[in-house]
């Protein structure tokens, strides 16, 4: 920044104006309240309060009613006959389906009703499990839930409905693996399946958006799919390197898949589909994993390490994260251009 710019010409160089700068000028009394409001009207998009409040009321209102229904059946009120419970939930499922059918696809109400139908199928199965106790494992409920609602998710073409379905599918996978694969001490197989499932959906999302399909195009859908992949890859690294012996084949595959996942995200979201939020999350996850793996390799079978290792790791951590900050800042600038 050149001070002469101020002295010679009262027009500053190309500085991007934001709310923070305008508020600062107002706070120091350099511009009037009217000038502040004028500037904010220029730089900030319209808030469309009516539309925003309507969407908020629909989404939160439906979420609360749905949560209330879940809480109600968790109470397991024995004064209600079993068939009345199941019949009531079935009626709600029909109402949700009819709402989608009447209102049509591609609207906020459709998203809400479609998601509600998926949740209510789970409530129906859980209540049925309360009534007819068969001793079945929890994973069977979640697998049945995911299987029964998959056609509905495909039919609605709603990102919100798919989001709810994917949560159910992930839980089904976790409970199934946890209850049927006791030999997988590092949970490598489970982590690998979770990453494959979520990456497959992320890839499908990117493919659909690239081919012009509108419903999965909202940016949150990418973040909601990418974050679980990064979280699972990070947790997998912690499980993996907790013990440095007894690696099995699936552990080795997972050990390759973790950096592979991070590398893939770096390439895709830095070069092919630039996205600063996903790239930042990838950098954070990579640094955390690198830090932990370095620490475990340095300490070996000693759990706590000696003071030299702690000092070294402190310095390495400082350098690693400072370099990551510098790189991410550079990447962000080049992505803005």
């Amino acid at each position: 920044m050149n001070a002469n710019v101020i002295d010679d010409d009262p027009t500053p160089p190309r500085i991007h104006m934001d709310r923070r700068t305008i508020d600062r000028l107002a706070a120091r009394g350099l511009i009037s309240a009217a000038a502040r409001d004028f500037a904010l009207d220029l730089i900030e998009p319209p808030r469309r309060w009516g539309l925003w409040v309507a969407r908020l009321a629909t989404t939160i209102g439906a979420a609360l009613v749905l949560s209330g229904i879940v809480y109600f059946f968790a109470f397991n009120w024995d004064r209600i006959p079993p068939m009345a419970k199941l019949g009531g939930i079935a009626a709600l499922i029909v109402a949700a389906v009819l709402t989608v059918a009447v209102v049509g696809f591609g609207r906020v109400v459709t998203d809400v009703a479609g998601s509600a139908a998926v949740v209510l199928v789970g409530v129906f199965l859980a209540v049925d499990g309360q009534i007819h106790q068969t001793g079945a494992d929890a994973w069977q409920l979640f697998v049945a839930w995911a299987a029964l609602t998959l056609p509905w998710a495909i039919l609605t073409g709603s990102a919100a409905t798919w989001g709810v379905w994917l949560v159910v599918a992930n839980i089904a996978l976790i409970t199934w693996w946890g209850q049927t694969q006791p030999d997988d001490s590092r949970r490598s197989g489970m982590h690998l399946c979770l990453i494959l499932l979520d990456v497959a959906f992320l890839a499908a999302r990117e493919r659909l958006v690239a081919s012009g399909v509108a419903w999965p195009a909202a940016r949150w859908t990418r973040i909601v799919l990418a974050l679980p992949v990064l979280v699972v890859a990070t947790l997998a690294a912690f499980w993996m390197w907790d013990r440095l012996t007894g690696f099995e084949t699936r552990d080795i595959v997972m050990a390759v898949a973790i950096p592979g996942t991070f590398a893939g995200f770096f390439v895709v979201y830095r070069r092919l589909l630039p996205d600063l939020a996903v790239l930042s999350a990838t950098v954070i996850a990579s640094c955390v994993v690198a830090d932990y793996v370095l620490f475990r390799l340095a300490t070996g079978d000693m759990r706590h390490g000696d003071f030299g290792i702690f000092l070294l790791m402190g310095l390495v951590t400082l350098g690693l994260f400072a370099a990551a900050v510098a790189w991410l800042r550079h990447a962000a600038r080049s992505m803005e251009v």
């Binding site: 009321a57 629909t58 209102g61 609360l64 009613v65 949560s67 209330g68 229904i69």
Partner: peptide
């Protein structure tokens, strides 16, 4: 109890809807 919580949630949701 779950019943009181349920009534609260359904009531709040109904107000918003």
């Amino acid at each position: 109890t779950f019943l009181v919580k349920s009534a609260t949630l359904v009531g709040s949701g109904a107000v918003l809807l």
